[in-house]
Design a protein around this nucleic acid. Structure first.
Lengths: 346, 346
DNA sequence: CTGAAAGCGCTTACAG
DNA sequence: CTGAAAGCGCTTACAG
């Protein structure tokens, strides 16, 4: 890599001190006297022309700020939610402050190793941490984060101190509300994955989404049924379960599905039974911004990944600037996207 | 953030020079004389106990290496392919070399602005660039990358200098091969999105995947038909087109679909026609590692995103170390994942 | 508004 | 194997 020109060199060429050059280049000083202004302009143009690129590391050394935060993720899929929107949101939250972020994948063996820490903890490398790790982060690792006293914001978890997470409780309620506003009075909720005896500790969203739906149903005093399974069902079995459920009266006019796959299952069952979606049956679900690969356009509440990323980033910057708040906990609202799977009841 | 202890302090406490401490901590010197060894151990333990974290920025200033590269992406979906696997692969390629990476989203307005450059170009911030930007990167931006003479590797494009991309040509061929090995002799290829008159410049993979299939079919001397559309079809229309295609003899025993959505469309059409998948009709496609939300398990060639990320990272490190090679161009093979959508012909 | 100077925390020939 | 010293490229009170 070409070393390029530096402050010293620039100062030498214009026979001024490097302090002056730095001031001209860094702060947008408005020079009142024309002589100064002309000189400043000349130096700015020269810096541009000669391709001066200030060394960010040197700046970090003198200021003690890295202008850099880290995003932590687990290697395993279950450990961290992750999407392009999330990264985008983080980027949007950080870039106005001229802060960039790096991505770190931690695999389980690295995490369980008590003797050595990942580099972002064992070195001074960044100003803060966005932790996107929802399941089973080992305790000693959490302690290590505390020990280095780096500002940290948690994503997608509810229990931690400084955290930002999608508001599944509200989304569940709003789902019921939306269907009721369309005129539905006989609802159902379907989840073909999570049962009451589910062995692994589920993400808070599994409970909250369902509970929001329950609360909404109670509030709206609407008739309803729940399709809950004992264990996660593979596709064909799930379709059969859905078909059985949809055949049994009182037949719902709308089903709120826990996720896109559940909606696809209900849809397949409906096709089997000759039930037309959305004419005879509305389907509504929750999921990421782009429910890929689906042929038909599912009405769903969009996970606010981008907003969550942005808010977490902004919150982290506040922490870095000393506005820590152990009580901070921010739910982020879902957005409804209406598709072709919902309409008024028959 | 707690400033913590530094080299100087550590040196002072042990009454040695900081050069000595640095040597003990950085290089794993094997001390022959026990006195030295004991002292080294003591210093290492003390560093650990006192929570010494070397300042990476200071190191970067002295060595001239940042240990940091950037990943460029477009804000728009069409501009960059992106997946967790890709990031994971990049991480895997970089981390053995103790290099981390930051993610940069460039939106179109930022890119078209000729007067100001994004920070990673206007500052000395990193050692190299991974460019994941497949469509319409403005020329002046490309020139700016050249001008700063930062090592750069391109992802997911074929035409550039130093590039790493999925081998769609080979994947297309292998798809035909696989079906022929199962005994199929009447194949088809379906793509409901990309037509010959497609207005936007398609990604190379659109052409290569199809061409690979064509070459494979020619090579295997197998009967075949192509379903090509004039323009991208919405779901319901596509299903009708697929049904019409599947009704018309000679009826294929297997369809190679350009992507998961195309396979879903063919599947829906088959259901409509009472054709059983895979008994009467095998479906095979291409796509990311986890074809989410699909109820049934599609046989598909997996985009080698993780391998591509790793290879690009390794290649970039080679470039940084001065092993540039303008002719470097690496296709990465797809991996077949067999599912429930393919079997022997009826 | 400016420059000389000290400082940030490291690395690395160099002489001993 | 070690220490004194110079150096990396910045920033920032401070005195003028």
């Amino acid at each position: 890599m070409s070393p390029g020109i530096n402050l010293n060199e620039l100062a030498r060429r214009f026979k001024v001190s490097r302090a002056t050059v730095a001031r001209i280049l860094n702060r947008n000083i408005i020079y009142t006297r024309p002589t100064y202004r002309r000189r400043a302009d000349k130096i700015r143009r020269a810096a541009l022309r000669m391709g001066y690129r200030p060394n960010a590391a040197a700046k970090a050394v003198s200021t003690g700020r890295f202008g850099h935060v880290g995003l932590l993720m687990g290697t395993h899929y279950e450990r961290s939610n992750f999407s392009r929107e999330l990264l985008r949101g983080i980027h949007d939250g950080l870039s106005p402050h001229r802060i960039h972020y790096s991505v770190w994948f931690l695999d389980d063996s690295e995490l369980s190793d008590q003797t050595s820490l990942p580099r972002f903890l064992s070195e001074q490398l960044m100003d803060g941490l966005l932790i996107n790790y929802t399941h089973e982060l080992p305790h000693h690792f959490r302690a290590a984060v505390k020990r280095v006293a780096m500002p940290a914001v948690w994503l997608n978890v509810k229990e931690q101190g400084d955290c930002v997470y999608p508001d599944d409780l509200q989304a569940g309620r709003k789902a019921v509300q939306y269907l009721c506003d369309l005129g539905h009075r006989q609802l159902a909720f379907a989840d073909f994955v999570h049962g009451p005896e589910n062995p692994f500790r589920a993400h808070y969203s599994v409970f909250d989404r369902r509970q929001g739906v329950e609360e909404g149903m109670a509030e709206m005093e609407v008739k309803h049924r729940f399709l809950t399974v004992r264990r996660a069902l593979p596709g064909p079995e799930a379709i059969q379960a859905a078909a059985a459920f949809l055949r049994e009266p009182p037949i719902p006019t709308a089903v709120i599905c826990h996720a896109a796959r559940d909606a696809a299952i209900c849809h397949a069952a409906a096709v089997q039974l000759g039930i037309s979606v959305p004419r005879d049956l509305s389907l509504l679900t929750f999921g990421p911004d782009r429910l890929n690969e689906s042929i038909f356009d599912l009405t769903h509440f969009i996970e606010p990944n981008q907003a969550m990323g942005r808010m977490a980033a902004e919150r982290l910057i506040a922490c870095i600037n000393g506005e820590a708040d152990p009580e901070f906990s921010r739910p982020v609202p879902y957005q409804l996207k209406t598709g072709n799977s919902t309409t008024t009841p028959p």
